[in-house]
Design a protein around this nucleic acid. Structure first.
Length: 210
DNA sequence: CCTCTGATCTTCT
DNA sequence: GAAGATCAGAGGG
């Protein structure tokens, strides 16, 4: 299958998509395609699980209480910027900065259904026994796509190697989206109006038990 | 099926 | 010194 660069930029999500609130972007990223090209190898997967992190009032967000450090600086960038941080000193977690500059909101991509570059993904995830183990969690996804701190600050709208393609024109219908509490942040409490984790119903690549 | 734990870096106390 | 937006392996039922 051939594909021109013009086709790719047509399919890519644009700045306006990212310049909206985190819960909405998190919901609408479901079903879209995250792509990373490295050494000429294109690896991609359908986004099946996301979480929204909301600015300075969200105790679970790195930007809580206006916190601004070398690590979290990227959260204050414009919508469409990539925010990568090292979790537990081991895992690279991939986030999309959303909303506008100086308005720290982000969407954590928690799971993908791999669709392209399966050989490369398998090589980067040697301990995965089954297909559902490849990208079913934020740390696994980071390893599978070879995401590291060098990608922090990249621009999904203009980067030649890291971007999100519009795999579907319309958001998924509501009945195919499960909404629930975020994972691993119980300390933050249920403070928002609605839960902030979103995943595609019935998809085996979603993290945790189904 | 489940619970426990080590790995290893940033940030805050 | 401790905890964290995690994962994988070990051990028990």
């Amino acid at each position: 299958m051939s594909r021109t660069s013009a086709d790719q930029s047509l399919a890519r999500l644009d700045r306006a998509f990212y310049r909206r609130d985190a819960a909405r972007v998190a919901r609408e990223l479901l079903g879209q395609r995250l792509v990373h090209i490295r050494d000429g190898v294109r690896v991609a997967g359908t986004i099946v699980e996301t979480e929204a992190y909301l600015g300075t009032n969200d105790k679970a967000a790195h930007s809580y209480n206006g916190r601004r450090t070398a690590r979290t600086e990227t959260m204050y960038a414009d919508g469409g910027t990539v925010y990568v941080f090292l979790n537990y000193g081991i895992h690279h977690l991939f986030n999309v900065v959303v909303a506008h500059q100086e308005e720290p909101q982000a969407v954590l991509i928690r799971a993908l259904e791999p669709t392209e570059g399966l050989a490369a993904i398998r090589a980067r995830r040697p301990r995965a026994r089954q297909a559902r183990d490849l990208c079913s969690g934020p740390g696994k996804l980071g390893a599978a796509l070879a995401i590291d701190l060098s990608h922090d600050g990249a621009d999904l709208v203009t980067s030649a190697s890291l971007f999100i393609e519009r795999a579907r024109q319309r958001p998924l219908p509501k009945r195919q989206i499960i909404v629930g509490p975020r994972i691993g942040v119980d300390y933050a409490g249920e403070w928002a109006a609605e839960p902030l984790r979103f995943h595609i119903a019935g998809n085996i690549h979603v993290s945790g038990r189904s």
